[in-house]
Simulated assay, not measured.
Amino acid sequence: MATQDDLASVRYLVDDVAAAIDFYTVHLGFEVRTNAAPAFADVVRGPLRLLLSGPASSGARATPKDTAAGRNRIHLVVKDLDAEIDRLRAAGLPFASDLVSGPGGRQILLTDPAGNLVELFEPR
């Protein structure tokens, strides 16, 4: 497995660490690196290390309570967006946008169990 210096880390605050682990590993191909549920876990996909911080984690406690979620999201490149949409819809996952086409490709947003955004992107 890659060392911590080889990975880019993003922290997502989640309500339920176990549900987040399930979402990212079952549906999006991440692998569990550390599981300290219910407080914390981290999952890895390629060079992305996603820190899943539950309410009891230090990362969640350090965040001011009045901080609103932004429009930031992780961006995952897929080879066949239509097939991914069909697969994830069949699994009952919630999408937060319609399919959008632009000059660089096509994308759609879905949400994890805590409402964090995940962008699936198929390059042109």
Rank of each mutant, 00 (worst) to 15 (best):
M1D: 12
M1V: 04
A2M: 12
D6Y: 05
D6C: 00
A8E: 00
S9A: 06
S9C: 03
S9M: 04
V10N: 02
V10T: 05
V10R: 04
R11D: 04
L13R: 02
V17Y: 00
V17R: 00
A18N: 02
A18D: 12
A18Y: 05
A19W: 13
A19E: 14
A19L: 14
D22K: 13
Y24H: 00
Y24S: 02
T25I: 00
L28P: 15
L28T: 02
L28W: 03
L28E: 04
G29H: 13
V32L: 05
V32M: 06
R33E: 01
A36Y: 15
A36I: 03
A36L: 15
A36S: 05
A37D: 00
A37R: 04
F40Q: 00
V43Y: 01
V43N: 00
V44G: 12
R45I: 04
L48Q: 06
L48W: 01
R49Q: 14
R49M: 12
L52D: 02
G54F: 08
P55K: 14
P55F: 03
A56C: 11
A56N: 03
A56L: 04
A56I: 09
S57W: 08
G59M: 00
A60E: 10
A60C: 09
P64D: 13
K65V: 06
T67C: 10
A68E: 11
A69F: 11
G70M: 02
R71H: 07
N72S: 14
R73L: 12
R73E: 08
R73C: 05
R73F: 07
L76V: 11
V77A: 10
V78D: 08
V78F: 08
K79R: 12
K79F: 14
D80T: 00
D80V: 09
L81S: 04
D82A: 10
A83I: 02
A83W: 03
A83N: 04
E84F: 11
D86W: 11
R87D: 03
R87A: 08
L88W: 15
L88E: 12
R89S: 04
A90S: 13
A91I: 01
G92V: 01
P94Y: 09
A96K: 15
S97G: 13
D98K: 09
S101C: 05
G102V: 02
P103Q: 06
G104A: 06
G104K: 09
G104H: 13
Q107W: 06
Q107M: 12
I108P: 07
I108H: 10
L110A: 08
L110D: 15
D112T: 14
D112H: 14
P113S: 07
G115I: 00
N116A: 15
N116C: 08
N116H: 06
E119L: 15
E119F: 14
E119Y: 15
L120C: 09
